[in-house]
Amino acid sequence: MLLVVVFVVRHDFRVVSDAGSSELLRFQQMIGGVGMGAVTVPAWNFSDFDPRLQTESTDTLYPIPGGYAYSPDRLAMVSAFQKP
């Protein structure tokens, strides 16, 4: 068990430390870098998905100033994005 833990920690540390050229980096270079936050669907907002797209928190501004923040990620509030 200890050996498994040591191996995984060592391996992951080496992987994390090495941010050199890889398939991951090439993909991000192609799309100009998209995605940062710990969120995978843009259902609530863009901000948490990629803060580059919306720099300011609009929680207190929109759609109800000072109102309850609907966004579970407490960034932007896009509570009424209608389906077509």
């Binding site: 994390v16 090439r26 940062m36 797209l53 501004l61």
Partner: peptide, 29 residues
């Protein structure tokens, strides 16, 4: 998980551009 997401985010930042330019509209992009 936090370290894993941070790791992938690093690629997003490093693989991205040096400058992102948008037009400001009512305080939003």
């Amino acid at each position: 998980v936090a370290e894993g997401v941070r790791y992938q985010s690093a690629f997003s930042v490093n693989g991205g551009a040096d400058l992102y330019i948008t037009r400001e509209q009512y305080g939003r992009n």
